[in-house]
Nucleic acid binder design. Structure first.
Length: 431
RNA sequence: GUGGGUGUAGCUCAGUGGUAGAGCACUGGAUUGUGGCUCCAGUUGUCGGGGGUUCAAUUCCCCUCAUCCACCCCA
């Protein structure tokens, strides 16, 4: 086979796709309870949108984007959903129509990373964004929503981590404080982090290197240099989470790789080690500057998150079941195939799932397959049936069969059979 | 981008320096037109690709590709 899926991209096929639909439905239902409506934005955006909003120095922009030039347009297949949603919010003048906007999205994102467990080059995120509410009530709602989804789909153990990056010049002041802390220790840091001292000292905080972690223990906390307003905001968030009974961990070392975050920052991580290094299931935070930076005339506060659907699916057991046919048609000779097709058509119009076996195999093989589908009924049509203008309908659950005429009441007769208990004693009924 | 593991039938995997096996699945039959259990029979492989060593390579060596995992980064 010479034509394969592109590296890091995989096909989602039945029966796995049933699990995906289930997860997406869980997410939609919960998001809609919180007042979110779906925003479907293009997969392709101007490269500049991501360069400016995610940040020029970030790994995502620097080396992971699928970018190309088409005529004179510089385009990028979206590596995340927030920037595109914010662009749509500004472009469509949504702030003029409503004071607060709540959008959710579900879809593929693209990053050219080296594939690993729970990480693909085309991966899928579901996320929410709120524009026009500076919180912290909606910050708490957003985190509650994430927890609701994670719990609804049955993730076993998870923890919620929160932090605040402050606003205004807090980030810069904190950065300076970190440089002051790490610079004298530079030669004790890992090779990777030695470079970060100058470029991105925040990232040293979540380094996996043991040495870095030890040195980060005594690093100044961003929470100590928040100004009064930022502190009040963060305390407000904590109060609301407490009121909701949501457990969380304040982690001043929580930082994120995208530059656009301000104030509230949070992650939901699995406590199982099933995902290896990819333990973050949900990441989000506030990005109060983005809308304005996109050219909107006034600042609009915003908060959002994205959850990694592959990661969540790999942790949960989907209850999704492959649909079972009501009726499996097994024409025993070519002349009976047309009738089978017509009868199936009538049942399908009436809302029933039917299978028609047109392979011309032995009755045994067709029955086996009907059984493999766990079909409730199997309709056999052969020479006798054609001659008498009837069909033989076998109830595979009750192990009995009868002959049905093909009058107007055919659909009704089949429905009556479907409505019977699966066994004589009536204990179980066909859901 | 760096490091490691794996690549044998449709699937899951055994195996050997002398050109390959099991289970599952599939098809036929035991039941001339009737399923889930059982039994019998049968189909399928360029042993990832290329090169080298050898009388002989699926097996040993090198390269390459794919894949998985770790680092990095992120959801």
């Amino acid at each position: 086979m010479e034509l394969r899926a592109v590296r890091g991209m995989k096909d989602i096929l039945p029966p796995e796709s049933w699990d995906w639909q289930w997860l997406e439905t869980c997410f939609r239902e919960i998001a809609e309870r919180y007042g979110f409506g779906e925003a479907r934005t293009p997969l392709l955006e101007a490269t500049q949108l991501f360069v400016r909003e995610i940040g020029e120095g970030t790994d995502v922009v620097e080396k992971e984007m699928y970018s190309f030039e088409r005529h004179s347009d510089h385009l990028t297949v979206r590596p995340e959903g927030t920037a595109g949603a914010a662009r749509a919010y500004v472009q469509n003048s949504v702030s003029g129509r409503e004071p607060v906007t709540r959008w959710y999205y579900i879809g593929p994102m693209f990053r050219a990373e080296r594939p690993a467990k729970g990480r693909y080059r085309q991966f899928h995120q579901a996320g929410c964004e709120i524009y026009g509410d500076e919180g912290p009530v909606c910050d708490a709602e957003i985190i509650a929503l994430c927890a609701d989804v994670i719990e609804a789909v049955g993730v076993d153990g998870y923890s919620i981590h929160i932090n605040s990056l402050g606003s205004g010049d807090t980030r810069e002041r904190y950065r300076d404080a970190l440089v002051k802390h790490f610079l004298p220790l530079k030669d004790q840091l890992s090779e990777e982090s030695q470079r970060r001292v100058e470029t991105n000292p925040l990232r040293i905080l979540d380094s996996k290197s043991k040495a870095d972690q030890a040195l980060a223990e005594d690093a100044p906390s961003v929470l100590d240099i928040l100004d009064d307003a930022d502190r009040a905001h963060f305390d407000g968030l904590r109060r609301h989470l407490d009121a909701l009974g949501i457990d969380y961990i304040v982690d001043h070392k929580l930082v994120r790789g995208l530059d656009y975050y301000t104030r509230t920052l949070f992650e939901l991580k699995t406590t199982s080690d099933a995902l290896g290094a990819q333990s973050t299931l949900v990441g989000g935070g506030r990005y109060d500057k983005m809308v304005e930076s996109l050219g909107h005339k006034k600042p609009v506060p915003a908060i959002g998150f994205a959850m990694g659907l592959e990661r969540i699916l790999s942790l949960v057991q989907s209850p999704a079941e492959v649909p079972k046919p009501a009726c499996y048609f097994a024409p025993m000779m070519p002349e009976a195939q047309g009738l089978a097709l017509q009868l199936a058509h009538r049942l399908r119009k009436a809302g029933h799932y039917c299978e028609v076996d047109g392979r011309g195999l032995s009755v045994r093989a067709m029955m086996r397959r009907a059984n493999g589908f766990d079909s409730r009924l199997c309709v056999l049509i052969g020479e006798d049936e054609l001659a008498k203008e009837t069909v033989t309908v076998k109830d595979l659950a009750r192990r009995e069969q009868e002959s049905l005429t093909l009058g107007d009441d055919f659909v009704g007769r089949i429905e009556a059979m479907l409505a019977r208990p699966r066994s004589e004693d009536g204990a179980e009924t066909d859901g």
